[in-house]
Design a binder for these strands. Structure first.
Lengths: 249, 249
DNA sequence: ATCGAAGGACGGAAGATCAAACCTTTTCAA
DNA sequence: TTGAAAAGGTTTGATCTTCCGTCCTTCGAT
């Protein structure tokens, strides 16, 4: 095949390849991915307490995995107290209520906080721009509803965070890009790990709400760049708070 | 654990979970990821023809996989003509020269073109903003050099594309975010599949270059939002071209 | 009382990955 | 000249993950 080992001297002309090319390749197993997917959706409240998951035989088909693999994941989630199973004809797997307390962020998670914020920036800027291009009235109405809920939850951080997640994921849904929706939920999950233990005085939440409103207004007027700017300012808020509290700021 | 099957009637109050939660979980194998990683780097020219890869025993450690797995990947790349191996003390695995011709984009790839562009938008907007925040003079100088190369390649699309890739990946490197670098190379690989077969008259390339210059100027002045705007306009160019040529526009 | 839909459990087959050897080729240096 | 070193090439077996199919158990609806 290779005619001759042509090892010509290329001197220093060839630029070094990004070291990212040879970075570790971490391959998630289907089991891990499934636990993460469902676990994140539950922790974010996208699957509400009491909600019933699709039947195992249906769900494993939808997720493209074997039923035994799905059961491994469900068993893990059940042992961690996030879901419970009920046998019998009208049985099923249900999201537990109340949810088990979230465990504190690991040192490793805290060390990666800036990377997490970078990832969030990537997802959310694109969401802002594409939502402005593609949102339909139904999306906008739903989002306004969520924004209303946000403004009524200044004193209850859990409720606030819940609505905040719904707003951001809802915006992602408005882009009609499944990958962005997935990325948005992933990022919200990662952010939840970071901000769960941070104090959020009502003033901060109020200012966040102002940014939400500006963001939605820009989306409604199909002004992508303004939506991006509003989103960028919104994200910077959290980032500054984190930079003040965590190492490497 | 679960005290009683509390299946209370929650009526229609609970919003439906995004269907993305139950979407198929595709788990890549380490072998596939490795072939893709190295293959993309080669096709993008990040690993130049004639360049030597790290020795197998070192590379498998760096990538966190077994040597046998790495060899499977290298064997695949060798059979497709992208690399060749030389035995002996000064041997190694080298990027082939010339590279095998790229195969035409599959119907499946073409069908996903909009998703690919969305992904690119996510990566590149974040890259633009973060590069403006974090680029150091060394980055800027290197990028200016690449921009110069771009302007000298208006008549040779292969050379142009090569420099274009280097510019975008170089910007990503300026963000100091390994994940963004990786995402940027991935996206460039996906884009290459799309645009390889599209005619690019010199006028289009010249207008692209103008946008590159504006982008770099904004980065140099640390004006994140202006960089984002320039990048957005730059991306829109390709997107309009694709929309005119491909279905679903 | 029975049927059906749900979760629960088991066993084997296939494939991917890892780990640890050992072989062969080639060059460099003693 | 000769041996050590460094590289790719090969083999083998163990382990883990996943899949598929089958069967069991539970329990509400009919």
């Amino acid at each position: 095949m290779a005619p001759a080992p042509d090892r010509r001297d290329r001197g220093a002309s060839a630029p070094a390849p990004p070291e990212a090319v040879f970075a570790p390749v971490r391959s998630y197993t289907a089991f891990e991915e499934t636990v993460d997917r469902l676990g994140t959706a539950i922790k974010l409240g996208l699957l509400a307490p009491g909600a019933r998951l699709p039947a195992e035989r249906e769900l494993c088909t939808r997720m493209g995995i074997a039923r035994s693999t799905l059961r491994q994941a469900l068993t893990a989630l059940s042992q961690s107290g996030h879901v419970f199973a009920v046998r019998g004809r009208t049985g099923g797997t249900f999201v537990a209520d109340p949810q088990p307390p979230a465990d504190p962020p690991s040192a490793e998670v805290l060390a990666r906080w800036r990377e997490t914020c970078d990832q969030r920036l990537a997802v959310e800027l694109a969401v802002a721009m594409l939502a402005a291009e593609r949102a339909v009235p139904a999306n906008l109405d739903a989002l306004d509803g969520v924004a209303g809920a946000l403004e009524g939850a200044l004193e209850d951080f859990a409720a606030y965070r819940q609505a905040d997640i719904r707003l951001h994921v809802g915006l992602a849904e408005a882009t009609r890009s499944p990958r962005l929706v997935r990325a948005a939920t992933e990022v919200q999950g990662a952010m939840s790990d970071l901000i769960a233990y941070i104090a959020h005085p009502p003033q901060v939440l109020a200012s966040s709400n102002l940014q939400h409103r500006r963001l939605l207004a820009a989306v409604r007027e199909r002004d992508g760049m303004r939506a991006v700017r509003a989103m960028a300012e919104h994200l910077q808020g959290t980032e500054h708070v984190l930079a003040g509290l965590l190492p490497g700021g």
